[in-house]
Simulated assay, not measured.
Amino acid sequence: MSVRQAANVLELLEYFSQRRRPATLAEIADDLGWPRSSTFNLIGTIVEKGYLYEPRPRAGYYPTPRWLKLVQTITDAEPLPEAAHRLVVEIAAETGETTAIAALSGVSAMFLDVAESTHSVRYHAQIGDRVPAHASSAGRAILAQLAPEARQALYRKLAFERYSETTPMTVDAIESELRLAEERGYHQSHSEYIPDLAGVSFPLRIGDRRLSVVVAGPVSRCLDRRPRIAQTMRSAITSHEAGLAAGQPVRID
């Protein structure tokens, strides 16, 4: 269930991240399709809290640095090591495909760090995107790290929506994929959630956190390359093990 007021605040932040300049109340309302009255109330509340200001009189509103300080404080409390970001960037450069680190969020895998492919045809992903844990290699690489009873508890929450012909639709099908991945040495996917997308994932442990690192790209370019992609990922993970264990947190500049 989506709470409209909360969604509007996040949509406003995304709006400014794309606009990158001040906006008047009228521009915000028109660009986002919001009623003028509710836009006035929302902006007024955020200004009062110190998160928006007018850089120049009557020239429009813009987010204050308070957002950055708030997010940095939150990030520092549960950081990813800088080595994790370097790992993502390195794998993306060597494979040529979009690479991400994911964590479990409910019944989904959420991306915490992303390095996109430079190909014009690529998997478009960004931090905060979510994919079903059971219908993605990124998710199953995390599920494989859970105790059987923890996995069963998660399975009971699944709706088992069919996204494609390859979506696993039963607990047995998911468990079978986990066993095959253990034998294979890595997790993989083929259009289970997003059509024409192939993925390769490995479990990634940072302290007591159960994460995964995934490479994903078009089936036409990646399906047959999955074993080679897995080899590249395995080598990169091994070379960054020390930094992942003791590295400095990623900071937002």
Rank of each mutant, 00 (worst) to 15 (best):
R140N: 04
Q126W: 09
P203G: 04
I194P: 00
L158I: 10
F160I: 06
P148M: 04
Q126S: 15
S189L: 06
F160T: 02
I127N: 08
A159N: 06
E182A: 14
S164T: 13
L204P: 10
A144T: 12
G139M: 04
L197E: 04
Y155N: 05
R162Y: 10
S137R: 02
E149L: 10
A141C: 07
L180P: 00
Y186I: 08
I194E: 15
A133T: 00
V131Q: 03
V131G: 01
G185S: 02
T166K: 15
T170K: 02
E161R: 15
V200Q: 06
G185M: 03
L146S: 00
A147S: 11
R156Y: 00
L197N: 06
Y163M: 10
E161G: 11
Q126G: 13
H190L: 12
E182M: 09
E182R: 15
A150T: 09
E192T: 03
E192M: 08
G185P: 10
Y155M: 07
R179A: 13
E175A: 12
V131H: 02
L180F: 11
R156V: 02
Q145Y: 00
T166Q: 13
A150M: 07
V131E: 01
Y163Q: 08
L180M: 14
A181H: 03
G185A: 04
M169G: 11
A135E: 04
E165A: 14
R130F: 06
F160D: 00
E192G: 07
H190V: 04
A144Q: 07
S137Y: 05
R140F: 01
E192F: 05
P195C: 11
P168G: 06
D196P: 00
D129S: 10
E182K: 14
Q188M: 09
S189K: 06
R184Q: 11
S189T: 08
G128W: 06
F202P: 10
A153N: 11
H187Q: 12
E161Y: 13
I127E: 13
V200E: 02
E149M: 11
Y186N: 07
A159I: 10
A159M: 09
D172Q: 10
I174D: 01
P168N: 09
F160V: 04
H134F: 12
Y186M: 08
P195E: 15
A173V: 05
A153K: 14
D129I: 02
T167V: 06
Y163T: 05
P195W: 10
D196N: 14
Y193S: 01
S164I: 01
A138N: 03
A181I: 05
I142Q: 00
L146R: 04
P132H: 05
R184F: 04
A150Q: 14
P148E: 01
A138P: 07
K157L: 15
E183Y: 07
A181R: 03
F202S: 05
Y155E: 05
A159R: 15
L158F: 07
L146M: 07
H134L: 06
E183K: 08
Q145R: 03
Q126F: 11
V131N: 03
H134Q: 12
I142S: 00
S189R: 07
S176F: 05
A144V: 12
S201Q: 09
G185C: 01
G128L: 05
L180R: 15
A135W: 00
L158W: 00
A173K: 05
I194H: 08
P203W: 02
A153F: 05
E161Q: 12
R162H: 09
L154C: 11
A138S: 15
R130A: 12
A153S: 13
E165G: 13
A141S: 15
V171E: 13
R130S: 13
E177Y: 10
F202I: 12
L143D: 00
